[in-house]
């Protein structure tokens, strides 16, 4: 028997420095503690079958870490939720559990929303608005990317869909960013912030959270759950 279940997981402050790989390992161990009927791969080194949404850089909290997992037995979603949620490490919690059947594959997501709290120092809101406007109008924003020891330049401009200014509280400003996130291309908030710093050198990040991740297709948004 093969039951595919999708989980939405939240990674909070206490767990924000753990890497994607660490999160995967922590979740596997949590499911073992919860004695969930994991389905394992065959062969000498059996692993549970897990798939995830794209990784985020360390230091970022997230409300939307999705994981697909295969079980060998049918269990109610409520039971999975309560058994697993009670054994998760500090800073990691379940938001929702649902069947994965009939839903988009997790590899299909291509867009994410982020809340980025920044401090702009002595710059004004008007300056920030101007900077964002300029950034969004550019067709080329080249950033350095290191992979396997090689440095190459990547144009992130087509992957920045929108940046909105949200709430302002004691000098700190909330930015809502809509960015590409997926196999076709992706950019993360720290890179966008770097680009903004060209206009406002005093700008610094206080907090970043991934709020949502989904498939955006022909003007329509489809969430993993």
């Amino acid at each position: 028997m093969r039951v595919k279940v999708r989980m939405r997981i939240r990674k909070k402050e206490e767990a924000k420095y753990i890497s994607h790989l660490d999160l995967m390992r922590a979740l596997e161990r949590a499911m073992r503690r919860a004695k969930l009927p994991l389905k394992f791969t065959e062969g000498f080194n059996p692993r549970p079958k897990l798939t995830f949404t794209p990784a985020i850089p360390v230091g970022i909290t997230s409300d939307v870490e999705y994981m697909d997992v295969e079980f060998t037995k049918q269990l109610s979603m409520d039971e999975i939720f309560s058994r697993l949620n009670s054994v998760l490490p500090p800073g990691i919690s379940l938001v929702k559990v649902d069947t994965a059947e009939g839903k988009i594959p997790l590899s299909a997501v291509n867009r994410a929303l982020y809340t980025v709290v920044v401090d702009i120092g002595n710059a004004t809101r008007e300056v920030l608005e101007k900077a964002i406007e300029k950034l969004l109008s550019r067709s080329e924003i080249n950033i350095e990317k290191k992979s396997k020891g090689k440095v190459k330049f990547v144009n992130i401009a087509p992957w920045i869909y929108d940046i909105k200014i949200g709430q302002i509280e004691d000098g700190k400003i909330e930015l809502k960013m809509e960015l590409a996130a997926g196999q076709q291309g992706s950019v993360t908030p720290p890179a966008v912030v770097n680009a903004l710093q060209e206009y406002i050198p005093s700008l610094s990040v206080r907090r970043i959270n991934r709020d949502e991740i989904f498939l955006f297709d022909n003007g329509k948004r489809i969430d993993p759950i």
Binding site: Y17, G59, G91
Partner: peptide, 18 residues
């Protein structure tokens, strides 16, 4: 500083069963 150092979980604590 933690976002700027390698392997920040060396210093963050908060592991299971801490």
């Amino acid at each position: 500083i933690l976002p700027k150092v390698s392997k920040p979980t060396r210093y963050s604590g908060n592991e299971l069963n801490i």
